[in-house]
C-alpha cells in the first residue's frame, strides 16, 4: 500500500513542471554557490604567504559552507514541495479516495513523506558532482562528506514532516507554504535564542529544541545518538500530528 501511494506521488511530482523547475533551480543555485566558495577559497590561499595557507581549512571554507547553503535553499524548496501535499487533496476532495479505502492515515502520511524525500534525493543527486571535484583536489574525507549528506537529509526529513503538518491544517496551499517557511525559520531562530540567553538551563533547552546545533554537529562528522534521536523524534512528532490532523476529518 505504501509503495503504491509513494509511486503515485512520485509520478505526480514528475508529471508537473514544478519538480523539473525545482531540480533545475536547485542545481543552478548550488552550482553557483559551490563555484563561488571554491573561488573565494582559492583567492584566500593565493593572497596569503605560504606559511599561513594551512590555517585556511578547505573543509571549513568550502565543504561545510556548501552544505550550510544547501540547508538554506531547503527553506524555500521544501515548503514549495510540501505545501500542496494535503491542501490540494483537501481542495479537490480527493482525500475521500483514501478515506473510502482500507488505507490507514499513517500509511498515507508515510507514503507522501517518503515521496517528498525521494524528490529531495533527486536534488541532492545533482550535487554529487561536487564531492567528485573535492576528491579531485585531494580531499578524501568521505566520512565527512557522508555525514554532511546525512545532515542535509535529516534536515530535509524534519522540514518535510513540518511542511506536511502545515499542509494538513490548511486548504490554501500558499498559507500552508508560508506556515512551513515560518516554522523552519523558527527552528533556526530558537537556537539563536539559546545562544543569547544567559540562563544555562534555558539556553541548553533552546539549543536542543532548535535544529541548528544538531545539524552543525552532523555536518562536522559527529554522529551523535542524541542528534539522531532529536531528528527521529521531530519527524515522528510532526508525522503523528499530521495523522491526528487528518483523523479529525473536519474538512
Amino acid at each position: 500500500m505504501i509503495f503504491t501511494i509513494w509511486k503515485k506521488e512520485v509520478e505526480s511530482y514528475f508529471s508537473a513542471p514544478l519538480a523539473y523547475v525545482l531540480i533545475g533551480l536547485f542545481s543552478l543555485i548550488s552550482g553557483i554557490v559551490f563555484f563561488n566558495l571554491l573561488v573565494t577559497y582559492s583567492d584566500g590561499i593565493q593572497s596569503l604567504p605560504p606559511e599561513y595557507t594551512e590555517q585556511i581549512s578547505f573543509v571549513e571554507e568550502v565543504v561545510l559552507k556548501f552544505f550550510a547553503n544547501v540547508n538554506f535553499l531547503f527553506l524555500v524548496f521544501i515548503p514549495l514541495m510540501t505545501m500542496k501535499l494535503f491542501s490540494e487533496e483537501r481542495r479537490l476532495e480527493t482525500l475521500d479516495l483514501y478515506w473510502a479505502s482500507p488505507v490507514k492515515d499513517w500509511e498515507l502520511v508515510l507514503s507522501k513523506g517518503l515521496a517528498a524525500l525521494t524528490l529531495v534525493l533527486c536534488f541532492l543527486a545533482v550535487t554529487i558532482i561536487f564531492p567528485l571535484v573535492i576528491w579531485g583536489v585531494g580531499i578524501k574525507d568521505f566520512k565527512l562528506i557522508g555525514t554532511s549528506y546525512l545532515a542535509v537529509l535529516m534536515n530535509a526529513g524534519a522540514y518535510i514532516s513540518l511542511g506536511m503538518f502545515c499542509s494538513s491544517i490548511s486548504s490554501n496551499q500558499v498559507i500552508a507554504g508560508l506556515l512551513s517557511i515560518l516554522g523552519i525559520m523558527f527552528l533556526w531562530m530558537i537556537t539563536w535564542g539559546g545562544h543569547l540567553n544567559s540562563n544555562y538551563l534555558v539556553a541548553e533547552i533552546f539549543t536542543y529544541i532548535g535544529i541548528t546545533s544538531h545539524f552543525e554537529r552532523l555536518l562536522r562528522g559527529v554522529l551523535g545518538t542524541q542528534d539522531l534521536i532529536y531528528y527521529f523524534s521531530f519527524i515522528f512528532i510532526f508525522s503523528l500530528l499530521t495523522v491526528k490532523s487528518l483523523g479529525r476529518r473536519n474538512w
Binding site: K8, S12, S15, L92, E93, T94, L95, D96, L97, A100
Partner: peptide, 14 residues
C-alpha cells in the same frame, strides 16, 4: 462500499 461523492474525487493529472 463504493462511493461516488457529489464532487467526483479525481486526480486530474493522471
Amino acid at each position: 462500499i463504493g462511493l461516488l461523492p457529489e464532487n467526483a474525487p479525481l486526480y486530474l493529472d493522471m
